[in-house]
Design a protein around this nucleic acid. Structure first.
Length: 595
RNA sequence: GGCCCCGUAGCUCAGCAGGAUAGAGCGACCGCCUCCUAAGCGGUAGGUCACAGGUUCGAAUCCUGUCGGGGCCGCCA
C-alpha cells in the first residue's frame, strides 16, 4: 500500500479528492502507454469529486470521458480498463462504470475515518495548505472617504476583504491589508468646511449648512474638539487661513472613527495609505513620467460619449492616458483644465507605488459603484508592470438595507444612514460578518436590518455555532463521565469501530474541508467557506438527532466506552473544522449556547 | 448609446474550472423532546434554471442576440 493515505508528519495536507485524482490519472497514463496511445494529454479537465446525486457513489471521475475525447477512443472501453485497475486498490470498496463513461467510486469506511483522524491530529492546521508558497498578496479594501463613520454599505467590502485575507493566509500567502485614504480631493475640503461650521457653532454662532456639506451629527464633537484646540482664533479668518488646519484635524478625527468602526468587526489594517502624501512628494509626476516613457501620455480631445450628451458637453483638449493600449474602452484624462491632477492621476501614482513595493499579486475590492473604474485601473497596472503583475479587482454589489421604514438610501452628506456601529451593536459582529459572507461578492445583498435583529436566533450563524457548542458540550460530558478525550487520546482510540453510513457521511464532509479551502482561496471567494460550514453543521445536527433513537449513533454512551470514544473523536474532527472555518470568516466559535 | 454585475422554488440565495434525476435556508403543510442543549431532526409540497439561437456525446454553467433589475459612463472622489 503506498503512502498517500497516510499522515504526512506536520504538514497534513490531506486532500483525498486531489490524491485520488492523481492515482486515477497515473493509472490512465499506464493504460495509454500499454495501448501505445498518446499519454501526454491535458488532464486538467479530469475531476474526482462528490457527484450531484447520491446514487452515483461517494466520488465520481470523468477521467475516461475526458481522455477518450481527445484520443477519439470509445469512453466506455477506456472506463472499463480504468475501472479494472482501480478495483485492484484495496482502499476502494466499489468501482462502477456508469453513464457515458463515468467511474463511480466508494471508499472503505476506514479510509474516510483515517482522514477525520488526521484532522484531530492536525488540529487548527488541518486544511491549511501552501498553495500560496509565501507569495506576497496586497489587498486593498474599504478605502472609504474620510468624511464620516462607516455605514452598512462599507461593511460588506470590509468583511469580504478581511476574510479573504484570512483565507489567503490559511493557504500559504503573505497578506498585506491596506486602506487607501482619499484625503487629497474636494471631498475633504467639503468636510473641512462642514467641520468649521460646527466649530463656529461650538463657539456659540448659529450656522447654516450649504449644498455639498456634511450635516451629520458626528461632526459636532469635531467642532467642539476644534474649539478646544484653537479656542476662538479661527473665527473671522478667511478660508485660506483656516482650511488646512481644520481639514487636517477633521481627517484625523474621521480616521479615528473609522478605525474604531473597523475594530468593532475585528478588522485590522496593516497600512493606511494617504493620497495626499502622493501629491505632496511629486510621485504623481513620477508615475506619469514613467507612462510617458512608454508613449502612453498625450494631449488630445476625447470623442463625445455616445447617446444623450451631458448639457454642458464641449470638446476639450486635455492630457490623456492611452488606456486603450491596455484594454480599456477609451483613453482617460489625467489632468484637469485648470492644470491640477484628476483623482485618476493619484490612483496611477498609488498603483505605481504598490507595484514598486514588490508584491507578487494585487487584489482590489471595490463597491459596485466603482465598477466603471476597473478597466482603466487594470490598464494602468498592466502598463506600469509590463503586464507582469497579477491584478484581481473584486466588486461587492451594494447592500440594500431594509428597515421598518422601508429601503433606506444611505447618504453621508444628508447624514442619514445605518451606521456600521448601529448594525454591529444591534446584532453583534458575528452575525454581521456571517450575513455579509453568506452571499457571493458580486451578487446583490439584502440586509434586512429588522429581520436580522428580530430573529437573530434563527440566523444561519447560530446554526453553525450551535453545532460547535454541541461538540464542546459532549466532550465536556465525556470528561465528567471519566472518558479520556484529549486529542492525544482520541488519536489513539479505535476508529475502526466507526462504519455506520451516517458516521461515514460526517467523516466524508470533514474530508472535503481541504479541497473547499483550496477552491475558495483560488477563486477569492470566502463565501464558499460559509456554505460549507452550513453543510458540515447540518450533517452533524442530523447525526446528533439520530443518536436519540439509535444507540449506535449516540456520541456518548457510557455502556460502550470504546465506540463512544471513537465517535467523539469523529465529532471532534468536525469541531476542529468548524472552529477553523469560522476563524477564516472572523466569527467566534462559541462553546456554549446558553443565554 | 456604451461598459460592468445580476436574472435558478412564493422569498433570500448556492450550484464547486460543462457532466449523469438542479440544491439549501426562510415561508407553507405533516411528524419527532421521560433520550448527549428541540437555537435541533425527519418528511411533503414547490422550478420549461428570464427568453431565443449556437458550440458539445453532454449546457444553469461557454458564445451571440433579446428582454428585465442594479451600477457606472469628459475637468467628483
Amino acid at each position: 500500500m503506498d503512502s498517500v493515505w497516510q499522515d504526512r508528519g506536520a504538514r497534513f495536507r490531506m486532500d483525498k479528492f486531489f490524491e485520488l485524482r492523481t492515482i486515477v490519472i497515473d493509472l490512465l497514463k499506464v493504460i495509454l502507454d500499454e495501448q501505445g496511445l498518446e499519454n501526454a494529454l491535458p488532464f486538467s479537465a479530469v475531476t474526482v469529486e462528490r457527484p450531484k446525486s447520491a446514487g452515483h457513489g461517494e466520488l465520481s471521475t470523468n477521467a475516461a470521458i475526458v481522455a477518450a475525447k481527445s484520443l477519439g477512443q470509445n469512453p466506455a472501453w477506456l472506463a472499463g480498463e480504468l475501472a479494472a485497475r482501480l478495483r485492484l486498490d484495496s482502499r476502494l470498496q466499489e468501482v462502477a462504470v456508469a453513464g457515458p463513461g463515468f467511474i463511480n467510486l466508494r471508499l472503505r469506511p476506514e479510509v474516510w475515518m483515517s482522514i477525520a483522524r488526521t484532522a484531530v491530529g492536525a488540529g487548527p492546521e488541518f486544511g491549511r495548505s501552501n498553495i500560496g508558497a509565501g507569495r506576497r498578496i496586497h489587498l486593498e479594501f474599504v478605502s472609504a472617504n474620510p468624511t464620516g463613520p462607516l455605514h452598512v454599505g462599507h461593511v460588506r467590502g470590509a468583511v469580504y476583504g478581511d476574510s479573504l485575507g484570512r483565507l489567503l493566509e490559511f493557504t500559504g500567502h503573505d497578506v498585506v491589508r491596506e486602506y487607501y485614504v482619499n484625503d487629497g480631493g474636494a471631498q475633504v475640503d467639503a468636510l473641512a468646511r462642514s467641520a468649521y461650521l460646527r466649530y463656529l457653532e461650538a463657539n456659540g454662532s448659529a450656522v447654516e449648512f450649504g449644498d455639498g456639506e456634511y450635516v451629520g451629527e458626528y461632526l459636532i464633537s469635531v467642532g467642539i474638539g476644534l474649539k478646544e484646540r484653537f479656542g476662538d482664533e479661527l473665527i473671522g479668518k478667511n478660508e485660506a487661513e483656516w482650511l488646512e488646519p481644520v481639514r487636517t484635524y477633521a481627517i484625523s478625527a474621521m480616521m479615528d472613527l473609522i478605525r474604531k468602526d473597523l475594530d468593532l468587526l475585528g478588522i485590522e489594517m496593516d497600512i493606511f495609505f494617504s493620497e495626499r502624501s502622493l501629491q505632496e512628494t511629486g510621485r504623481i509626476e513620477e508615475a506619469l513620467a514613467e507612462l510617458d516613457r512608454r508613449g502612453l501620455i498625450y494631449e488630445g480631445v476625447l470623442d463625445p460619449p455616445k447617446g444623450s450628451l451631458p448639457d454642458d458637453w464641449e470638446p476639450r483638449r486635455q492630457t490623456l492616458l492611452r488606456a486603450t493600449a491596455h484594454g480599456d474602452d477609451v483613453d482617460r484624462p489625467v489632468r484637469k483644465s485648470d492644470g491640477s491632477w484628476t483623482y485618476f492621476a493619484s490612483d496611477i501614482a498609488y498603483h505605481y507605488d504598490k507595484i514598486k513595493r514588490g508584491y507578487d499579486e494585487l487584489v482590489n475590492i471595490f463597491g459596485a459603484d466603482h465598477g466603471g473604474y476597473t478597466k482603466r485601473l487594470k490598464a494602468v497596472v498592466s502598463a506600469l508592470s509590463d503586464g507582469g503583475m497579477p491584478f484581481d479587482i473584486k466588486l461587492t454589489q451594494l447592500v440594500r438595507v431594509i428597515t421598518n421604514e422601508g429601503a433606506s438610501r444611505m447618504s453621508k452628506r444628508a447624514g442619514q444612514f445605518v451606521s456600521l456601529r448601529e448594525a454591529v451593536e444591534a446584532v453583534g459582529p458575528d452575525v454581521t460578518r456571517f450575513v455579509m459572507l453568506m452571499r457571493k461578492n458580486d451578487a446583490q445583498l439584502e440586509f434586512n436590518f429588522e429581520e436580522v435583529r428580530r430573529q437573530s436566533k434563527e440566523n444561519p450563524v447560530f446554526y453553525v455555532q450551535y453545532a460547535h457548542a454541541r461538540i464542546c458540550s459532549v466532550l465536556e460530558r465525556a470528561r465528567s463521565a471519566g472518558f479520556r478525550v484529549d486529542d492525544s487520546d482520541l488519536l489513539d482510540c479505535n476508529w475502526s469501530l466507526l462504519a455506520h453510513p451516517d458516521l461515514v457521511a460526517l467523516a466524508r464532509r470533514v474530508a472535503e474541508w481541504p479541497r473547499t479551502v483550496d477552491q475558495a482561496s483560488r477563486h477569492h471567494e470566502p463565501h464558499r467557506i460559509a456554505f460549507y460550514l452550513n453543510e458540515l453543521a447540518s450533517d452533524f445536527h442530523s447525526l446528533w438527532s439520530k443518536g436519540n433513537s439509535d444507540a449506535e449513533l449516540k456520541l456518548l454512551d457510557e455502556t460502550q466506552p470504546d465506540a463512544s470514544t471513537a465517535r467523539i473523536g469523529l465529532a471532534r474532527s468536525a469541531g476542529i473544522v468548524i472552529s477553523s472555518g469560522l476563524g477564516i470568516l472572523g466569527v467566534t466559535p462559541i462553546s456554549e449556547m446558553r443565554n
